[in-house]
Amino acid sequence: MTAALLAKLGWRFFIMAFLAIGGANAVVPEMQRQVVEIERWMSAGEFAALFAIGNAAPGPNVLIVTLVGWRVAGIAGALVATLAMVVPTSLLTYAVFRVWDRLKDAVWRRPVQNGLSTVTVGLVAATAWLLASATDVSPFLALVTAATAALSYFTRLNPLWAFAAAAALGAAGLV
């Protein structure tokens, strides 16, 4: 592990931090493109596995960043990637919300908020599509993904039940 690798890793996540409207999951497609396609630090399957671990673990969805940094450059990489992703956005969020609170009566505030919500939903949907396409390597796995998505969207059932069912299918050797 070199300082150049840590600097490159930090720069990639620093830039992505400013695109993460709605959280780290909003930039997962770009994160995957950077670490899998451009830098070739890992395979698409490894990235999908890190994403699954990061979301299965308790805590914020930014854990994927820490796991990617760890996979690329060990503990130093985990620290660099996490700090590069969290510190700039934390400072920016603090500044924006101070201003946003002062503009609570502005006529244009609600339309801007609604527009940003729509962008966030689109970015998270792109994340879902990217990860599904990387892991659905058979018709049966695509069916499991579709069933999980339908269950999550059309019912109030906790999605962890669908994940547990998928894990049971995997443990049974069916996938």
Rank of each mutant, 00 (worst) to 15 (best):
F163E: 03
T155K: 03
P88A: 08
P58E: 12
L83T: 05
V80N: 03
P29M: 00
Q32R: 07
Y94N: 07
G69M: 01
G23F: 07
G122I: 14
V68W: 00
G59S: 13
T93D: 11
P159I: 01
P111D: 11
V87P: 06
Q34C: 01
A171S: 10
R12Y: 10
T66V: 13
R110Q: 15
Q113K: 12
R109I: 10
V86Q: 06
V144W: 02
Q32N: 06
A4R: 12
L91Q: 12
I64W: 03
V35I: 14
P159L: 10
R156M: 12
P139G: 05
W70R: 06
L131A: 04
S43G: 08
T2S: 15
V68P: 00
L151D: 01
R12T: 09
G74C: 05
G69P: 03
A142M: 05
P139T: 11
R33V: 03
G23L: 10
Q32T: 02
V68Q: 01
A57C: 14
I75C: 08
S90D: 11
S138D: 07
Y94A: 13
P139R: 07
T2Y: 07
G77I: 06
A149T: 11
S133L: 14
K104F: 10
V124I: 15
N55S: 04
A48V: 10
G170M: 14
S90K: 12
T82W: 01
R40H: 11
T148L: 04
W70P: 01
Y153Q: 05
A17H: 00
G77W: 00
P88W: 05
L160H: 08
L131C: 04
A150N: 03
W161R: 09
L141I: 08
L63H: 13
N55H: 15
L123N: 02
V96I: 15
M31I: 05
I75D: 09
P58Y: 13
S43M: 12
S43V: 06
R109G: 00
A149G: 08
V124F: 04
L169N: 00
M1N: 05
A52F: 11
L5F: 00
W11M: 10
R12E: 05
A134M: 11
V62P: 00
A52I: 08
A95C: 11
A49R: 06
I75T: 13
L50W: 04
A81M: 05
I53R: 08
A57I: 15
A146Y: 09
A128V: 15
A106R: 13
L143G: 09
R33G: 02
V144L: 02
V80F: 03
A24M: 07
A56E: 11
